[in-house]
Structure formats: structure tokens, C-alpha cells
């Protein structure tokens, strides 16, 4: 068994897997109403698989929730519907109705307003609406500098605010799960996974992921160096006019106008990893929102976005 290095030790991935399963079970035991936030990305897909394993042969005792900004890639939504149906998940989909009706979108309002209204605000509204006291997220500490110090159990006040100075010490595997009414905890079971771990796990476990991760010829517009795919007819016509078919793939998934593709030939997981090992850009740089201002991810976290 490749999982075991010798009689009494397991490899790094199985150790991370055991850690994540332990965390997921701990939340299911200690909170009244947990939810797993589902972004449909590869990290989410891994987290969802870990939850399925944690309660096997039983059903996962909490639902998935997707905050739909209404600007996600169409393939993401198709994938979400199929995966959750095939795997018997309870799925909640929420969005900011007011924002949607006001026509908020990245092309018209810019990335900052769009992200705030359709993602951050939408998430906070949904958490309040369902009164979830714990929400799993698929964030990893190696993704971005401000996440290196994030706790696995990250405390949020009743306004869902994250205060870096007011986080609980986290020792051993003893997690303080106590919250007052209205307060909540964001839980990151795959905090200690790296991007390579994620790909390795997807490969080993044959976890289905959205096809956008694999290279394919797609209609692409170059907007200030960001390769944006034409995913629907809401893209302004003058931009659509510049579209060219290019062999690209996506390293992260989000709202299509805010998520840049990279040129790539990698159409298998092995090729993706190979590309990753030789690649020149780290993961989140293809997310347009990070460049708004310095320390911007930290800012968004304080406001309640992951």
C-alpha cells in the first residue's frame, strides 16, 4: 500500500488527509449548524471529498453552500449541479438578490464593488439567513502571504469580521469551538495543504474537477494582460470583438471577468503539475482582485471574504 511508508507510518498526503478528516468531524461534533462553503474550485472539490470520507459509510451531516455571484463560468454551474446530485449532497445556493437586481457586475461596476456586493455581502447575508455557526472554507496557508498566519479555526465576531489581533491561540489538535450567539468560526481543514498536495490528491483519488482547469482552445480577450474568456453575452461588445481562440487553462476559478487564464498545453493533471513545477507565476496572480491595493486580501478577509 503506497499510503504507508513502512509498517507504522503514513505518507505526507495521508497525514494531511487524516488531519483534515479529524477537523471536519470535530466541527460536526461541536457545532449546532455547520455548513461547507463550496466554491466549485479544485480546493473545494478536495474538501468536499474529505467530508464524504469523514462520514463514510454515512451521509455528511451538513450541507454545501455556494455563493453564486451570477458571474461564475457556466461550466462551473453545470459541474456543481452534476456533482452534488451524483453524490447526494444537500446544496444551498445563495446570491445577493438586491445586488443582482441592481445589475451589479464587474464590467459595469469594477472588480472591487462587484466582489464586495456579490461575493462578500452575499456570503454574509447567507450566513445570517441560515444562522450557521461554523463555515468550512477551502483556503490554504500557502496561497498568499496574509494566510500564512490564519488559524485552522478562525474566529469571526457577530459582524463576521476577522480581527488579526483577536484570534485564539491554536495548540496541538485541541480546537476551541466555543462561540457566543451570533459569533461564528470559519474552519479551514486543508490549511496545511500546498497546491501540489491538492493536485496530487485529485490525481490519486480521481476527484472530478471543473474542465476549465484543463487546457483547451477558448475564446479569449486580452484585457491589460489578463486573459479573460468570453463566457456569455454580458461581456461588452467592443471587448468580444477582440476575442481570439487561444489554448488556455485556468489555475483558479471565480467570476469569469475577474479570472485570468494562462496559456497552456496542459490537458491532464500530470501535465498541469509538470507545468506548475516549471511555471513562473504563483497561483493567485491570475485573480484580478488581488491587485486592487497592497495587502488587499488581508483587507477582504477583515471584511468577511475569505
Amino acid at each position: 500500500m503506497a499510503d504507508q511508508l513502512n509498517n507504522y507510518s503514513i505518507n505526507n498526503l495521508r497525514e494531511l488527509e487524516a488531519e483534515a478528516i479529524y477537523i471536519i468531524r470535530e466541527v460536526a461534533s461541536e457545532f449546532e449548524k455547520p455548513v461547507m462553503l463550496y466554491s466549485i474550485g479544485k480546493d473545494s472539490s478536495v474538501m468536499v471529498r474529505l467530508a464524504e470520507k469523514a462520514f463514510y459509510p454515512g451521509k455528511v451531516p451538513f450541507p454545501l453552500m455556494h455563493i453564486d455571484s451570477k458571474w461564475k463560468f457556466q461550466e462551473m454551474i453545470e459541474f456543481r449541479e452534476k456533482y452534488t446530485k451524483d453524490n447526494n449532497w444537500d446544496l444551498i445556493v445563495e446570491h445577493n438578490i438586491e445586488g443582482f437586481e441592481a445589475g451589479i457586475g464587474p464590467f459595469t461596476h469594477g472588480s472591487k464593488v462587484h466582489t464586495d456586493v456579490m461575493k462578500t455581502q452575499a456570503l454574509l447575508q447567507a450566513l445570517d439567513k441560515h444562522r450557521f455557526d461554523a463555515a468550512f472554507g477551502g483556503a490554504r496557508r500557502d496561497e498568499e502571504k496574509s494566510r500564512a498566519k490564519e488559524r485552522i479555526f478562525s474566529f469571526r465576531d457577530k459582524f463576521h469580521q476577522w480581527d488579526p489581533k483577536n484570534q485564539r491561540p491554536e495548540l496541538w489538535d485541541i480546537y476551541n469551538t466555543r462561540v457566543h450567539k451570533g459569533e461564528s468560526i470559519r474552519v479551514f481543514p486543508i490549511s496545511n495543504w500546498t497546491e501540489l498536495d491538492i493536485w496530487q490528491y485529485i490525481r490519486l483519488e480521481k476527484i472530478p474537477i471543473v474542465p476549465l482547469y484543463f487546457a483547451k482552445k477558448r475564446p479569449i480577450v486580452d484585457i491589460d494582460g489578463n486573459l479573460i474568456m468570453v463566457d456569455d453575452d454580458r461581456m461588452p461588445a467592443e471587448l468580444v470583438a477582440k476575442a481570439q481562440m487561444r489554448m488556455v487553462r485556468f489555475r483558479t476559478l471565480g467570476c469569469y471577468p475577474l479570472t485570468g487564464a494562462i496559456e497552456s498545453e496542459a490537458d491532464t493533471i500530470e501535465k498541469i503539475v509538470e507545468e506548475m513545477m516549471t511555471v513562473t507565476k504563483s497561483e493567485r496572480t491570475t485573480r484580478v482582485i488581488d491587485f486592487d491595493q497592497e495587502g488587499s486580501m488581508e483587507q477582504k478577509k477583515r471584511e468577511g471574504y475569505f
Binding site: 503506497a2 505526507n12 497525514e15 494531511l16 500530470e270 503539475v273 509538470e274 516549471t278
Partner: peptide, 20 residues
Amino acid sequence: MNTNLDINHFLDQDQKKDLL
């Protein structure tokens, strides 16, 4: 990294590592 890298070999080796 060597472009002739056999990626499957690399991934299989990677799996055998432990964590410190």
C-alpha cells in the same frame, strides 16, 4: 527543472515522502 522529467515518476516519488 529538467523538462524531460517523467512527471508520473515525480508524483509517485512525491507520494512516498513523509512530513516533518
